[in-house]
């Protein structure tokens, strides 16, 4: 569906990615990592400085404007709606522009306004809506096109929990029907839960691309055990720990759960000393990304 080969533009440098049809790819990265630039490159709004891009089998820069309903895009700050319109008028206008038949519009509108629950303010002008309300209409607008490819730039900004739930549910349904989705966010937890693949982007580089599961098994098998001791600090030289930190009666151990189990560690410690408290922490995705950045930087530095 989308192929980027050694693409460079602004912060993006020598970027490779292939997104097959039917995947929902979450772009994760901090602000300024290059997420929006990537989406613009994929859509044809930006031309790459170097490299090769194909979107739905076409060169998006040369053939922008020919995608019609094949591609739906929402970029922050580039609203698809006219401010002085009501939600219904704004969506109807898009139907005229994209040549969507009237009957289809009515059907889609009924369904989407119901699911995003904006019926109660459908008579208000877009400019009078709150950020979250507006976002619901905005998302309904791109989904109404039923595109083959949907590009979304931080669509969860301003959405409340109900809005997010409705949004992700619809995305999941559309993906099952074959829609390809690329969605960026700086909320990794949310996105990794809903996307079939995640792409970690940092300073224009692709740090990781694959399922969340693979990310966890590959990079983040490091667990943390925190103990409060009531006695001497035990000798742990026989355990394959990554590292440990001791601070007064607190002991913090970092270990690879594939190499040594929590039970083994606790067993050895209890032989030597008394323990008041034990806590095992599985790292969350944010910790993992931080860790991954560290790993990659080391790898890069070693290569130099």
């Amino acid at each position: 569906m989308i192929t980027l080969e050694s693409v460079s533009k602004f912060i993006i440098s020598d970027f490779h990615i292939h997104i097959p049809q039917g995947e929902c790819v979450g772009l994760i990265g901090v602000s300024g990592a290059g997420k929006t630039t990537l989406l613009k490159l994929m859509s044809g709004l930006l031309a790459p400085k170097h490299g090769y891009i194909r979107t739905i089998g076409r060169n998006p820069v040369r053939e922008k404007g020919t995608y019609g309903r094949d591609m739906g895009i929402f970029l922050t700050g580039k609203s698809n709606l006219e401010n002085q319109d009501t939600a219904r008028e704004a969506l109807e206008m898009l139907c005229h522009v994209y040549r969507i038949p009237k009957e289809e519009f009515h059907r889609s509108y009924e369904a989407l306004s119901e699911r995003f629950a904006f019926r109660e303010y459908e008579e208000k002008r877009i400019k009078d809506l709150s950020l979250g309300q507006r976002m619901r209409v905005e998302l309904a607008a791109v989904l109404m096109l039923k595109p083959k490819l949907l590009l979304l730039d931080e669509p969860d900004i301003g959405l409340d929990e109900n809005g997010k739930a409705a949004f992700w549910k619809i995305l999941e349904e559309e993906r099952r029907k074959g829609m390809t989705i690329v969605v960026s966010s700086h909320n990794p937890v949310e996105i990794s839960r809903h996307c079939s693949r995640i792409a970690l982007i940092d300073e224009g580089k692709l740090l990781f691309y694959g399922t969340e599961k693979r990310l966890r098994s590959k990079y983040a098998s490091m667990d943390i055990m925190q103990l409060k001791l009531d006695g001497k600090i035990p000798d742990l030289e026989d355990l394959p720990l990554k590292k440990y930190e001791a601070e007064q009666d607190m002991l913090r151990l970092f270990y690879d759960a594939n190499l040594v189990s929590a039970a083994e560690i606790i067993g050895l410690i209890l032989k030597q000393t008394q323990v008041k408290e034990i806590q095992v922490i599985k790292p969350n995705l944010t910790d993992m990304i931080m860790q991954l950045k560290g790993v990659k930087e080391d790898e890069l530095n070693r290569g130099k």
Partner: peptide, 9 residues
């Protein structure tokens, strides 16, 4: 303008 440029018109 970005909006117009991507539309099939």
């Amino acid at each position: 303008f970005d909006r117009y440029i991507l539309r099939p018109r």
